[in-house]
Design a protein around this nucleic acid. Structure first.
Length: 248
DNA sequence: AAATTATACAACCGCCGCATT
DNA sequence: CAATGCGGCGGTTGTATAATT
């Protein structure tokens, strides 16, 4: 059994031990941790040595308080990558997440930055909206022109044509599926809930508005709640409604 | 000022995936 | 194919420090 020796030291590291470990890594490089204790002259197990280096002694480690953008990254990337953040140790991120961002630490209703609130359920990596390539062609009615509108799949977008004829000029998302997938993946719970809600409460008459608004395009956004963070939701919102239409 | 409680973070443990033998 | 060892990760604990009573 690994580390079963009674003589192996545990607990806090001393300055002398740190120095020995640093000198060893500088001389032999990282890795081969099973050799480190003997090489460094340390009475520690390999895991303890590796942890001390990766979580504390490594000069590449960023220390100090987490910046707002780092916190936002932690929350969003936590859905995808777990406790990984460039420049920070996994242990640091984990500790920060557990002490500052766990459900029991944050009360969503009183959180001044709800979009940063991580008390979201963990979302397993998956696209929340199906690829547009899976959308079937649909027919709808353009109440304004009193004609039949056809939604079709173009090469890289979804376009809507009036009366099966001329394209009436707007399409989305204008980006490829991968971007859509990643947008989906990085959504937090509030965004997901909003999207799900819009899908659940979809009113087909909304399509009429789409048909009559020739100015509308994929880059059009209107802030949902005065926060830039949610601007991109419009695009997803439209996708959600389309998704709902296609699955009725 | 002392005792108690809360917080932050360093460190350990057990497990898992992977590579090697 | 099974056994073994290593590196790495998530969960948890231990402890020093700060805040509160």
């Amino acid at each position: 059994m690994e580390g079963s020796s009674l003589s192996v030291r545990k607990g806090a590291w001393t300055e002398k031990e740190d120095t020995l470990l640093k000198e060893c890594i500088e001389k032999y490089g990282e890795g081969k941790w099973h050799k480190v204790p003997s090489r460094a002259g340390l009475n520690r197990c390999r895991k303890s040595c590796r942890l001390r280096w990766t979580n504390y002694l490594n000069p590449n480690i960023k220390k100090g308080a987490f910046a707002d953008d780092e916190v936002d990254l932690i929350i969003r990337l936590h859905n995808l990558l777990g406790n990984r953040l460039p420049g920070r140790t996994a242990n640091d991120v984990k500790n920060y997440f557990n002490t500052h961002l766990s459900k029991k630490k944050v009360n969503p209703s009183s959180d001044p930055n709800p979009h940063l609130n991580p008390s979201f359920r963990v979302i397993k990596p998956r696209p929340l909206i199906l690829s547009k390539n899976s959308f079937p062609v649909i027919l709808g009615e353009d109440k304004k022109t009193n004609t039949t509108a056809t939604t079709t799949l173009a090469s890289n977008n979804i376009s809507v044509s009036a009366n099966g004829g001329n394209n009436i000029g707007y399409c989305f998302p204008g980006e490829n599926d991968e971007v859509m997938w990643w947008d989906n993946l990085m959504m937090n719970e509030k965004e997901v809930d909003y999207l799900q809600d819009s899908m659940n409460n979809f009113n087909p008459s909304v399509l009429e508005d789409w048909h009559i608004n020739e100015e509308m395009d994929c880059s059009t956004t209107c802030n949902l709640d005065e926060e830039d963070n949610y601007g991109h939701l419009d695009e997803l919102y439209l996708h959600g409604e389309l998704w709902n239409v296609f699955n009725q």
